[in-house]
């Protein structure tokens, strides 16, 4: 942790740079979503736009967590504590997603309605 006044002065520069990166990332994420020139994949929203948007968001989030929240030089215990939350949150999202989109198709009940859910 930056504790001495010297370290803090140095850190302030870093904070400004990261602030700049966050602004730039936000502008980028809006541009790829709204300006046709930067639109990747099909015309309009598609899964490429989703992955790109999430990738930019994750990058921004990592900068906030690493620099603003000092995770780049934090005590080991903090990693353990916070990681426990992240790991289980990811497990939850993945398993719930898996339960909805099971790779093996199940032809039990209600398959008549299943087609409604898919956009043509």
């Amino acid at each position: 942790m930056a504790d001495s006044a010297e370290d803090i002065k140095k850190a302030i520069r870093t904070y400004l740079i990261v602030g700049g990166i966050l602004f730039a990332g936000t502008v980028a994420t809006v541009l790829v979503a709204t300006v046709p020139m930067f639109d990747i994949g099909r015309h309009g929203f598609d899964h490429w736009d989703m992955w790109l948007g999430l990738a930019i968001a994750t990058t921004k989030a990592s900068f906030v967590a690493m620099v603003f929240m000092h995770l780049n030089h934090e005590k080991k215990a903090v990693y353990w504590l916070f990681a426990s939350g992240i790991i289980f949150a990811i497990a939850m999202v993945i398993l719930i997603f898996g339960a909805k989109a099971d790779p093996i198709e199940y032809k039990g009940f209600g398959q008549g309605d299943a087609s409604i859910g898919t956009t043509p």
Binding site: T26, T29, V30, A33, T34, F45, D49, M50, G53, L54, I56, A57, K60, A61, V64
Partner: peptide
């Protein structure tokens, strides 16, 4: 918010 903004406004 970094996640909520693209997810709700841009996707």
């Amino acid at each position: 918010w970094i996640f909520a903004f693209p997810i709700f406004y841009l996707m």
